[in-house]
Amino acid sequence: MMDDKEPDAAGLERREMLLAGGAALAAGLVPAPLQAANRNSSALGARLQGVQHFGLTVQNMDRAFEFYTEVLGGTEVMRDGDFQGERIHNTLLTDQEIEARERGVNPRTIGVPDLLGGSQRLDVRFVQFDNVVIELLQYRDASEPMGGPKSFAEPLDHMSPAFPRMMHICFHIRDDVDFNRFIHDLETESTRRGMTQVRANRVMTVTSEKDRLAAPMEANSNPITEGKSNGWRLIYCKGPEGEQLEFVQALGPVKKTFDDALAARRKLVVAR
């Protein structure tokens, strides 16, 4: 039996060929069809470029768009809509259609819009931030105008980050920003625009909305000063649609942890 620490000549030759092939691929010396063939046979993670966007289904498209662009400062990438028909319906809703049939119920009763027949339509808008895109989606009846306040289904009344399957959007506050002041200004600007759902938590115990509003500004964020998360500052907040948001600031040791992880990730991607 061969010693695992001493590869045979064939193994060395194969390894050298793989290394040479990887170097040629990185240098752009491999013909495009061969590059594609190599990529398509590689690990799944090597075929990804990363996260392209987060999607949020909203009740009021114009209100949500105003919040993510005018309040939080994102920029519009594009908008499209009035989507209907068999292909888009099946693309988005096949799983829910099958579930309805297995339950023996009308798909509409479990929140499946009729894009197939066109009774409902789908509109989308994409908003660009520095490192990610957010997609806003609105399902509406065909008779309702694009961007209006009426959606196909009612929003969930109770949203908790403790629910399995619940997701949130996290925004990264710049290093030199006063976090507590940012939260104060966010709530003030949102209230001015009539977005009363935009409410951030407090780190002190409050038992009413009046108490929450009366809390001192230093209660607007939670600074972590020990352990692996040392340097992390955060607070959870609801958006104008009742969606779960988070705002974070990463400084000190935890900033280095994330920066090192990103640098290691970039090296890994280049080596693939």
Score class of each variant (00 low, 15 high):
residue 50 G to M: 04
residue 52 Q to T: 09
residue 8 D to H: 11
residue 65 F to H: 06
residue 13 E to T: 14
residue 45 G to C: 01
residue 8 D to Y: 08
residue 70 E to D: 15
residue 76 E to S: 12
residue 17 M to H: 06
residue 5 K to D: 15
residue 29 L to P: 02
residue 54 F to Y: 12
residue 77 V to Y: 01
residue 66 E to H: 15
residue 4 D to G: 05
residue 83 F to V: 02
residue 92 L to F: 10
residue 92 L to Y: 08
residue 68 Y to C: 00
residue 20 A to R: 10
residue 13 E to R: 03
residue 4 D to V: 15
residue 65 F to M: 11
residue 47 R to E: 01
residue 82 D to S: 13
residue 29 L to I: 03
residue 24 A to D: 14
residue 15 R to V: 11
residue 27 A to S: 15
residue 12 L to Y: 03
residue 85 G to N: 07
residue 78 M to S: 13
residue 51 V to P: 00
residue 58 V to P: 02
residue 84 Q to Y: 14
residue 95 D to N: 09
residue 69 T to H: 03
residue 8 D to Q: 08
residue 64 A to W: 12
residue 10 A to Q: 10
residue 98 I to G: 06
residue 18 L to H: 08
residue 79 R to H: 14
residue 17 M to W: 04
residue 21 G to W: 09
residue 30 V to A: 08
residue 7 P to Q: 11
residue 26 A to Y: 00
residue 4 D to M: 12
residue 44 L to D: 05
residue 55 G to S: 15
residue 57 T to R: 06
residue 62 D to K: 07
residue 36 A to F: 03
residue 32 A to R: 14
residue 87 R to H: 03
residue 58 V to A: 03
residue 10 A to I: 13
residue 81 G to H: 05
residue 70 E to A: 14
residue 93 L to V: 13
residue 20 A to M: 07
residue 47 R to A: 00
residue 55 G to V: 07
residue 3 D to W: 04
residue 53 H to S: 05
residue 59 Q to S: 11
residue 75 T to H: 11
residue 49 Q to I: 11
residue 87 R to S: 11
residue 65 F to I: 05
residue 61 M to W: 00
residue 9 A to C: 02
residue 38 N to A: 15
residue 57 T to F: 07
residue 33 P to A: 02
residue 63 R to L: 13
residue 57 T to D: 06
residue 43 A to H: 08
residue 4 D to N: 09
residue 6 E to A: 06
residue 70 E to W: 01
residue 92 L to R: 04
residue 95 D to T: 15
residue 81 G to S: 08
residue 87 R to Q: 06
residue 79 R to C: 02
residue 98 I to L: 12
residue 28 G to R: 01
residue 2 M to N: 10
residue 22 G to F: 08
residue 33 P to E: 01
residue 15 R to M: 11
residue 26 A to I: 04
residue 39 R to K: 12
residue 91 T to V: 05
residue 17 M to A: 15
residue 3 D to H: 08
residue 74 G to A: 07
residue 86 E to V: 10
residue 22 G to E: 15
residue 7 P to D: 01
residue 9 A to M: 09
residue 12 L to V: 09
residue 16 E to Q: 11
residue 92 L to H: 05
residue 88 I to E: 02
residue 89 H to R: 00
residue 12 L to F: 11
residue 41 S to N: 12
residue 60 N to V: 06
residue 73 G to N: 01
residue 74 G to Y: 00
residue 55 G to W: 05
residue 88 I to W: 11
residue 75 T to D: 07
residue 76 E to Y: 06
residue 30 V to C: 08
residue 84 Q to S: 14
residue 95 D to K: 13
residue 13 E to M: 06
residue 19 L to I: 12
residue 96 Q to V: 15
residue 83 F to G: 00
residue 48 L to D: 04
residue 53 H to I: 08
residue 27 A to G: 15
residue 67 F to M: 04
residue 13 E to V: 09
residue 7 P to L: 03
residue 43 A to D: 06
residue 33 P to G: 02
residue 21 G to P: 06
residue 56 L to A: 10
residue 56 L to W: 07
